[in-house]
Nucleic acid binder design. Structure first.
Length: 267
DNA sequence: GTTGAGCGTT
């Protein structure tokens, strides 16, 4: 009766997910159910597994029907020994429905009920332990598949080939967003550079398909004037410079241009 | 058969 996760998320409306970390790779949903069901109505337990090996990834999601019960479970089960390991129970954040608002609401209630020091200690401990684990993971250099965490794309693809260490994105928790204003802070001109559209957009009136490729980019002066006789007419009747021509100018002048210069060109 | 940071399936 407790076969969770067999048919997908059963009822994800008005449920409160807890993330259970540090469980054993052999702990199943049926093992967790009696523990968590003591503190409320558990509507679902899901243990993500590796798609290739089918193994547990070492954490679980326990979904409660009511938020206060979930909060109580966090208080009671966080730090509990399960199968010889100290599990970490916290509210899930990045889930499909991201019950962050409800989570904070219930956390606030919890703060008022008890002396607010428990949750704070728990957060501090998690933070510290996360850093510690990061260091250990770097030194041990085992577990040859931490790449499944780059799950934006290519999650189940080439995990065995691309093993460049620089791929490891360290920007999950950026402690200080504004740090180290490097002296060469100038905005790289390539940032504002035109995305180099299709080369056919060079001039609006260039419909001639007679093979003569008129108005190559190198024949245009930096000031938007055509080189000589062949006039692609960068300005229309209103005197506005065509967008295509602006792109050309940008491409040429970019190495010497500061952003203000580009603005000058645009206006 | 191992492992141990993290956030999720039909």
């Amino acid at each position: 009766m407790s076969h969770f996760g067999r048919s997908g998320p059963p009822d994800i409306s008005d449920t409160y997910s807890l993330l259970v970390l540090n469980i054993t790779f052999r702990t199943t949903a049926d093992d967790l159910f009696p523990l968590f069901d003591k503190y409320g109505k558990v509507v679902d337990i899901f243990i993500p597994r590796d798609r290739r090996t089918g193994e547990s990834r070492g954490f679980a999601f326990v979904r409660y029907k009511y938020g206060d019960e979930a909060s109580k479970a966090v208080d009671r089960l966080d730090g509990r020994m399960v199968d010889g390991r100290e599990i970490t129970v916290q509210f899930a954040k990045y889930g499909p429905h991201a019950e962050r608002m409800h989570r904070d609401d219930y956390r606030d209630r919890d703060y008022r009920r008890r002396s607010r020091s428990r949750s704070y200690d728990r957060y501090e401990r998690d933070r510290y332990r996360g850093r510690d684990r990061d260091y250990r993971r770097r030194s041990r250099s085992r577990s040859a598949s931490p790449d499944y965490k780059s799950r934006r794309k290519g999650r189940y693809d080439d995990e065995r080939h691309s093993r460049s260490p620089s791929r490891r994105s360290p920007a999950r928790h950026s402690p200080s967003p504004r740090r180290s204003p490097s002296p060469k802070k100038s905005i790289s001109p390539q940032r504002i550079a035109s995305p180099r559209k299709s080369p056919r957009v060079e001039s609006p009136d260039n419909h001639s398909r007679d093979g003569r490729r008129s108005a190559s980019p190198h024949s245009v002066s930096p000031h938007g004037r055509p080189d000589s006789s062949r006039s692609p007419s960068p300005r229309n009747s209103n005197g506005d410079v065509s967008v295509a021509h602006l792109e050309l100018c940008s491409e040429i002048e970019l190495p010497n241009l500061s952003p203000t210069n580009i603005v000058f060109y645009l206006f």
